[in-house]
Nucleic acid binder design. Structure first.
Length: 666
DNA sequence: AGCACGCCGACT
DNA sequence: GTCGGCGTGCTC
């Protein structure tokens, strides 16, 4: 097998985990090197790809190799560190290298007008003098920035403890050393407030990278980063691939946030990619959170990250008082099922009376989760999914939250003809209505996926609430993140325990994070805050730990459970979903996949399933789930990879969905 | 992912 | 008799 300078490996964005070999025509030889984007003939079409290796062996296909068609001169090229990083993504998350590269590149656009970066246009920043706690933390981070070597930190600090100031000072230090800064935030965290704060504090223009940005703008920002014009990048998930030259500092704010995980191929976790990138490129890594993921805290405990604690709130503001209301008792004592307890009603009234604001969380949208026939027990379900339809009073339709299908509300039970259907499981619409009834004078806003569907509505709601034009804001978890409302002194959480019952190993972790985040919303101004948590299972330890804001108690107890059941972070986890239109086919294929896993894992893997996924059917497709666990994550992924090769001929490729390190197994 | 081939049901 | 449904297979 001889190598030939004129043969190259090309990565193409198809879900086939292999590379394709092409011949380089003499005319293009000078331009070809790894990372270059090319156009190639591929089957009956022509596609774009990326040269990943020059001088490779001829593959053993009897046929003549095809020529590269052209080099995309306007296309970007990836530098070696980024090529290496995308290769890691492909190997670890089991996608093709081409798919990984595709998700790292900005969108291709034709003509693009230059747009302005977020520059220095604002007045220079009032550099706050750091608190004692911030100084102590910076005393660890800054020397690492000067050393110019990989150094990972977990910055553990409550909401309002001043993490951003720490990031800013670390960024200043990195920039002063001539190195670039990559600052990742969750989807929702890219607020104008944060951007202006960064722009006013850091020298030079800042690039913003976010997949919701128009293609042209994203492309411009990307070019500015690659050219070195912008040495600070702020962005969401995909910005982890920003082509920052000489990366010195990588910040992952709110590292526990689920939006860092991409829920489509390639299913990468930007935080975990960030860790690999920082290590590869010798950068300082700062993961920040008030409620670290169990993964990150576990790594810190094991000494893989340096744990830095940032103590109490700045300006010595007290933590809010958290009260848990037992809704079973409430029901016994009042004899009525009211979504708002007497205690919460009283507290809202008092807050409004003082001219203060209330934030009410109900993590479920719509009016009623389901319509139930009281005579025969039938529930109106989605025709394509194994899930009930949610009643939305606005616009007066039943809607499936999984597939989006809409139905009119039947006048009577479709099974027995009983005319009255009962509404069960109240959502934000219903809560808003209830609050309007209880507080007819109050100005009430609702923020959930239904009300913010139109562009700009979310910003408007937040602005109104911030200005004091609203007294109460009701909403789903989107009200929990990233906003600082100084006039909020009361936070109410309804059915705080409903997510605890989900058949998902991260249910408790997510509930704890949400409650802690919500508690952090109360009393950020000079007035103390109050949090009222309503729950049926009011004695649940997660609620008590969240009420006490005791992360470490939660961590220790939850780790006991993860250890016992061998769930992450104690063990690596891969989820395979085998999907088929017919349940018998899905089952048979899943069985074959499971057998291949046993074989490829040499019986060292722990398998759960195959069995029906918790949501058995979505969009008419039956879903069989297999969970695979093993102590060594890399070994686990390799075994899954081998198993997939083993079933290549027996199970249709499209039927198998693989999720490495899934956030949820629902 | 595309894109083609190929084999079974309702139409001009 | 054809149009077209989507299962299966391949892409240097």
């Amino acid at each position: 097998v001889s190598e030939d300078r004129r043969l190259v490996s090309v990565a193409i964005a198809v879900p086939v985990r292999r590379l394709f070999t092409y011949r380089v025509p003499e005319t293009l030889e000078g331009e070809i090197r790894p990372g270059v984007r090319v156009r190639v003939p591929f089957g009956r079409r022509r596609v774009e790809g990326t040269v990943v290796e020059v001088g490779v062996a001829e593959p053993e296909t009897g046929r003549e190799l095809l020529d590269l068609e052209s080099v995309l001169d306007d296309g970007p090229e990836l530098d070696p560190p980024l090529l290496f990083l995308t290769r890691f993504v492909a190997d670890y998350y089991l996608c093709s290298w081409g798919e990984a590269i595709e998700s790292a590149l900005p969108p291709r656009v034709r003509r693009r007008p230059r747009r302005e970066a977020i520059g220095e246009p604002g007045e220079p920043a009032p550099a706050l003098s750091p608190t004692k706690a911030q100084e102590a933390v910076l005393a660890e981070i800054l020397p690492a920035v000067h050393r110019r070597a990989y150094a990972p930190f977990l910055l553990f600090g409550a909401t309002g403890s001043g993490k951003t100031e720490v990031y800013l000072r670390a960024a200043e230090a990195a920039l002063a050393k001539g190195r670039g800064v990559l600052y990742l935030v969750p989807e929702i965290g890219l607020t104008p407030l944060l951007l202006s704060r960064l722009a006013r504090r850091l020298p030079g223009p800042i690039a913003v990278l976010h997949s919701a940005m128009p293609a042209g703008e994203r492309r411009d920002a990307w070019e500015r980063v690659r050219s070195g014009e912008c040495r600070v990048v702020v962005g969401a998930r995909s910005a982890v691939f920003a082509p920052v030259p000489e990366l010195g500092l990588l910040v992952v704010d709110e590292e526990h946030d689920g939006s860092y995980k991409q829920e489509e191929r390639p299913r990468y976790h930007a935080r975990d990619v960030a860790v690999v990138r920082a290590r590869n490129e010798g950068a300082v890594l700062v993961l920040g959170s008030a409620t670290p993921s169990l993964e990150s805290f576990h790594h810190a405990r094991a000494g893989r990250y340096r744990l830095l604690r940032l103590g109490g709130r700045v300006e010595q503001r007290p933590l809010p008082a958290v009260r848990i209301v037992d809704m079973r008792r409430e029901y016994r004592e009042t004899g009525a099922v009211r979504p708002v307890s007497r205690a919460l009603e009283k507290a809202v009234a008092e807050a409004l009376g003082r001219g203060e604001q209330a934030l009410i969380l109900r993590n479920r949208r719509g009016w009623a989760k389901a319509l139930l026939c009281p005579a025969c027990g039938v529930r109106i379900g989605c025709p394509r999914c194994s899930l009930s339809l949610t009643w939305h009073r606005e616009p007066g339709r039943l809607r499936c939250h999984l597939c989006g299908i809409e139905r009119p509300r039947p006048g009577a039970c479709p099974a027995c003809g009983q005319p009255e259907l009962r509404e069960v499981g109240e959502g934000t619409e219903r809560i808003e209505d209830e609050l309007r009834r209880l507080f007819p004078e109050a100005r009430i806003g609702r923020m959930d996926r239904d009300t913010v569907r139109r562009r700009g509505v979310q910003e408007r709601l937040l602005r109104q609430f911030d200005r004091g034009d609203l007294d109460i804001l009701v909403g789903t978890q989107m009200i929990a993140k990233g906003h600082d409302f100084p006039r909020v002194t009361l936070v109410g959480v309804l059915s705080a325990d409903h997510t605890l019952g989900l058949p998902d190993f991260r249910a408790a972790e997510r509930t704890f994070q949400l409650l802690t985040q919500m508690a952090g919303r109360a009393g950020r101004g000079d007035r103390p805050g109050e949090v009222i948590v309503q729950a049926f299972d009011s004695g649940h330890p997660v609620l008590r730990e969240a009420a006490a804001q005791d992360y470490e108690a939660f961590y220790e107890r939850e780790m006991g459970f993860r250890r016992a059941l061998r769930y992450p972070p104690v063990s690596g986890l891969v989820r395979l979903l085998v999907v088929g239109k017919e349940p018998s086919k899905a089952r048979a294929w899943a069985q074959l996949v499971a057998e291949a896993l046993e074989q490829a894992g040499e019986n060292k893997l722990v398998l759960s399933g195959p069995g029906p996924a918790p949501v058995e059917r979505i969009r008419g497709m039956y879903r069989e789930q297999i969970l695979v666990r093993s102590a060594g994550r890399r070994r686990l992924v390799e075994a899954v990879s081998r198993a997939l090769e083993l079933v290549e001929r027996k199970v249709p490729r499209r039927a198998v969905h693989v999720d490495v390190d899934p956030l949820s197994v629902l």
